[in-house]
C-alpha cells in the first residue's frame, strides 16, 4: 500500500513553524504537495518572504521531510524550499540528508538547531499556559485554585492544554497527571502571588507570537493571494 496525499497532508499538519508554534499547513506555507502512484512525495514549501530566517526555514523543511519519510508506504520524499534567498544551500543539504551545519559550512556554532528550537518551545509554552490560565480564571477559579490545579484536572480534549503538555514533554518538563497544570520554566508549581506578574509576561509573549503569525499571513495574502482566515481587514 503506497502513501496517499491525505496522509502526507496530515503528516505535514504535525509540522510546526518553530517560531510561531502553529502548523505549517494552517499558516499556508505548503505551496504544493504531489504524490505519485509509486509513493514518491514531492512537497514545496513557500515562506512569507524570501528573507525569512534561514534557520527557521531549515527546521520546517527538515521536519517536513522527516515527518513524510516516517509514513508507511513512502517510496521517496523530496522537500524543496522555493522562493528563498538561501534556498539553494538549504535544498542541497536537505537532498543529501544533511544538517543545518552542512547547509552553511563554517557559518554555525553548533551542528544542529535544537537549542534554537528549545528557546521557542519555551516561549510557546509560556504563551499557551497564559491563555489557559486566563481561561481558568474567567471560568471562576481564584488565583490560588488555578495554581493548585493538576494536569489530571484539566479539561479533556482542550487543544490548548494538549499542546502545553506536548511542549512540556518535548522540553523534559513534568507532564504526568499529578503534575501542576501550570508550571514555571523550571517545572515548579507557580505561586498564586506571582500569578498577575506571570500573566502579564505570558500575555506579551503570546501577543508577540500572534503578531508575527499575523504579519506572516498578511504577507502571504498580499504576495501570493493565500487566503488569511485571521484577517481583520480585507486585503487589497
Amino acid at each position: 500500500m503506497t502513501v496517499g496525499q491525505p496522509q502526507v497532508l496530515e503528516a505535514l499538519g504535525q509540522v510546526r513553524d518553530p517560531e510561531l508554534d502553529e502548523p505549517i499547513t494552517a499558516l499556508g506555507f505548503v505551496a504544493s504537495c504531489a504524490v505519485s502512484a509509486q509513493g514518491e512525495v514531492d512537497v514545496r514549501l513557500r515562506l512569507p518572504t524570501p528573507q525569512c530566517a534561514p534557520n527557521f526555514a531549515f527546521l520546517m523543511a527538515a521536519d517536513a521531510q522527516a515527518a513524510i519519510a516516517a509514513l508507511p508506504g513512502t517510496a521517496g520524499v523530496r522537500v524543496t524550499l522555493v522562493d528563498h534567498y538561501t534556498g539553494q544551500e538549504i535544498n542541497r543539504a536537505l537532498a543529501g540528508g544533511g544538517r543545518f551545519c552542512d547547509a552553511f559550512p563554517g557559518e554555525t556554532a553548533g551542528p544542529d538547531l535544537e537549542a534554537l528550537r528549545e528557546l521557542f518551545q519555551r516561549k510557546a509554552l509560556l504563551a499557551r499556559q497564559g491563555r489557559l490560565a486566563r481561561f481558568l480564571l474567567a471560568d471562576g477559579l481564584s488565583a490560588a485554585e488555578a495554581v493548585a490545579l493538576s494536569v489530571s484536572e484539566l479539561q479533556d480534549g482542550d487543544p490548548e492544554a494538549a499542546r502545553c503538555l506536548a511542549l512540556r514533554r518535548a522540553l523534559g518538563l513534568p507532564a504526568d497527571p499529578a503534575a501542576p497544570a501550570l508550571i514555571s520554566g523550571d517545572g515548579a508549581r507557580l505561586d498564586a502571588a506571582d500569578l498577575p506578574t506571570w500573566l502579564r509576561r505570558a500575555r506579551l509573549v503570546g501577543l508577540s507570537l500572534e503578531s508575527n503569525g499575523a504579519i506572516c499571513r498578511g504577507l502571504l495574502a498580499v504576495r501570493h493571494g493565500v487566503p488569511d482566515p485571521t484577517q481583520e481587514v480585507q486585503a487589497a
Binding site: 528573507q51 530566517a53 534557520n55
Partner: peptide
C-alpha cells in the same frame, strides 16, 4: 534582521 553570525542563533 533574519541573520547574524553564527547562523544557528536567533538573528
Amino acid at each position: 534582521g533574519p541573520t547574524i553570525w553564527p547562523l544557528d542563533k536567533d538573528g
